[in-house]
């Protein structure tokens, strides 16, 4: 009985963890964030290009920059953000419990997550797809080459489900080896404990660059992409004001790119385009999104437009922007935002 009690108490602990703000309903997280003067952003710390932490404890990466974008948009200062590194399985619990305001951790938008996890997926910042990487020396080029293979995968990710679905549909037997994070997975892959590594193609490109850069074996990423992985910021369900503030802050980077404004030029815009003048808040245009009227200027001048953020983080890991789905819609890509007027 005593042990049962302990079990119940432990369950109850989870209950309290989930009970961050009991009053709910009334106040928006937007007010809480402004009052706190800091955005708490859940991110990755082990993924080159998207979220890494250096020896001095500084975070950098594509996702991390979008956390800064939100801080700049909502609070006017891109440095007012605190990063919480999260594992793949812990991320939604952290979001539900209110431990973080915002989750930008290469998280794929799926129906189950949107529904069951109480998560609200916003503007997709990166269109990715799942690929497979093998050591180049193996000469494998197709999924069929991987029959009976050990395939390294991060546990609790959509890649795990895609892998199972695609290989089963094609009748290719395989054995998944589930790892908790990339710091464990990478040495196992390099030691040959797995024949292949599956993940989002962007991640594989990042690790291919790192492994080869550090003098490891040459790697090959298979041409076949086996899934759609739209990645973007996520907030908790049921808080429209906060969701809108985050979404428009993020979309401002794409809008600025489309207008041809970058971190250097947006502050000194002297043209007469009414759309751009609205966008930079000139003349006091404010669509009452809960954001300061000059939020776009803050976002772009402090962090940069989408292209700058991409060039800073993703180009170094070897993924080109031009011609990819992440290019601007006017260039044939998928980056398209609603008009700001």
């Amino acid at each position: 009985m005593k042990r049962l009690m302990i079990g119940l108490v432990a369950l109850a602990m989870i209950a309290t963890a989930c009970g961050g703000d009991d009053d709910g309903g009334g106040t928006s997280l937007l007010d809480t964030v402004i009052e706190r003067d800091e955005v708490i952003c859940g991110g990755n710390e082990t993924l080159p290009g998207f979220g890494v932490v250096d020896d001095a404890g500084n975070f950098s990466g594509f996702d991390i920059d979008f956390c800064r974008v939100v801080a700049a948009g909502v609070l006017g200062d891109s440095s007012k953000v605190r990063f919480v590194p999260l594992t793949a399985e812990a991320r939604f619990t952290a979001l539900q419990s209110g431990e973080i305001d915002l989750l930008i951790r290469n998280t794929t938008w799926t129906a189950t997550r949107d529904g069951q996890e109480g998560a609200n997926f916003l503007f997709t910042t990166f269109y990715d797809g799942q690929g497979l990487m093998v050591p180049a020396s193996t000469g494998f080029t197709t999924l069929e080459d991987l029959a009976d293979a050990n395939i390294c995968v991060l546990t609790g990710t959509t890649t795990e489900l895609n892998l199972t679905a695609v290989f089963n549909a094609r009748g290719i037997p395989f054995n998944p080896v589930q790892f908790e994070d990339n710091t464990q997975l990478r040495p196992a892959y390099e030691a040959g404990q797995c024949n292949a590594w599956t993940s989002d193609a962007s991640q594989l490109a990042a690790f291919k660059a790192t492994i080869e850069g550090e003098g490891g074996d040459e790697q090959f990423i298979m041409a076949e992409i086996i899934s759609k992985e739209p990645l973007g910021p996520v907030v908790a369900d049921g808080d429209t004001a906060w969701a809108q503030a985050v979404e428009w802050s993020v979309m401002a980077t794409v809008q600025a790119w489309e207008f041809g404004l970058d971190s250097g030029s947006i502050g000194s815009y002297s043209g007469t385009s009414p759309n751009i003048l609205n966008f930079i808040g000139d003349g006091g245009f404010n669509p009452t999104l809960g954001l300061p009227s000059d939020f776009a200027v803050q976002v772009v001048s402090q962090v940069g437009n989408y292209e700058e953020i991409y060039n800073r983080n993703i180009i170094p890991i070897g993924l080109q922007l031009t011609g990819s789905p992440n290019d601007l819609w006017t260039n044939g890509g998928l980056m398209y935002v609603p008009p700001y007027r």
């Binding site: 793949a88 399985e89 619990t93 799926t110 189950t112 997550r113 069951q116 996890e117 546990t155 609790g156 990710t157 959509t158 795990e160 489900l161 589930q178 908790e180």
Partner: peptide, 8 residues
């Protein structure tokens, strides 16, 4: 269990 939680 963690895998299962991570998968929704």
């Amino acid at each position: 269990t963690k895998t299962s939680i991570g998968n929704g």
